[in-house]
């Protein structure tokens, strides 16, 4: 991750760009005080007043917690609707929600509630889960720390990303959307300061359908893209 000036093909813009600081994070998941839901009506009530952190966790943090990367469902609400309530229609409607489309979590909650209310109005019985398949509302604390590593120029993105932990990838690509002004990833924010390959890389990053990727899949995609666009043949 040291800078090779001779191979630096990206041109800096007029503003001096500070190196990209690689951060890392780790999660500890907590059970909220919310009672578990045993049927769809209870679930609707709990979603209506569960903490925002819980909604965020069940939509956005599923990718980082220790669990199987379910190829079918990417949020816990959809997964529960399918696996516990066996309501395929509801599961599909919930699964299609992209949580990053919304300005804030209250808006996301409203959309989820709309879908639940629609479904409750359509069906003639309330789907129940088995007693051992209740929905538990979780939230998580993210501990963030600086790795002391930096990326000096886009040429070094490829190597740096290939060596990142899933925690770093999550922090810079997923969690970033919660805190950056334009709800984008940290690489995009940093690359704005670079012309040439930097701009091309931003365009490529914006096309990644990351929500349907595991963190390892995302890592492979980012390594390939950064090697192709900004690489200097130093791909690991």
């Amino acid at each position: 991750m040291t800078r090779n000036r001779e191979n630096n093909r990206s041109r800096r813009s007029k503003v001096e760009v500070t190196p990209f600081q690689i951060m890392d994070c780790a999660l500890i998941v907590r059970i909220t005080d919310q009672l578990p839901a045993l049927n769809l009506r209870e679930f609707r009530e709990r979603v209506a007043d569960c903490p925002f952190d819980s909604i965020y966790h069940h939509f956005c943090e599923t990718v980082i917690r220790p669990s199987f990367d379910d190829p079918e469902f990417h949020n816990d609400f959809a997964r529960w609707a399918r696996r516990a309530l066996h309501d395929h229609v509801l599961a599909e409607r919930l699964e299609i929600i992209n949580p990053y489309e919304f300005a804030d979590l209250e808006e996301l909650r409203k959309v989820v509630l709309d879908i639940l209310d629609d479904r409750l109005s359509e069906i003639h019985f309330i789907p129940w889960a088995l007693h051992n398949r209740q929905f538990f509302f979780h939230s998580a604390t993210t501990v963030i720390f600086d790795t002391s590593l930096t990326i000096d120029s886009p040429e070094h993105l490829c190597t740096a990303i290939s060596q990142m932990t899933t925690g770093s990838l999550y922090y810079h690509f997923w969690e970033a959307r919660r805190r950056t002004p334009e709800h984008t990833d940290d690489f995009t924010e940093w690359l704005r300061g670079w012309d040439g390959e930097g701009a091309r890389m931003i365009k490529a990053l914006s096309k990644i359908d990351f929500y349907y990727m595991s963190l390892r899949e995302l890592q492979r995609t980012l390594v390939e893209l950064s090697d192709k666009i900004c690489g200097n043949g130093a791909r690991p």
Partner: peptide, 22 residues
Amino acid sequence: REYLTLMVGLRRGFTDRLIAAA
């Protein structure tokens, strides 16, 4: 990692995000 994260949280107090020392 999870035990260490929990211990950092217990020591510092839990919020949704905690900035730890490097």
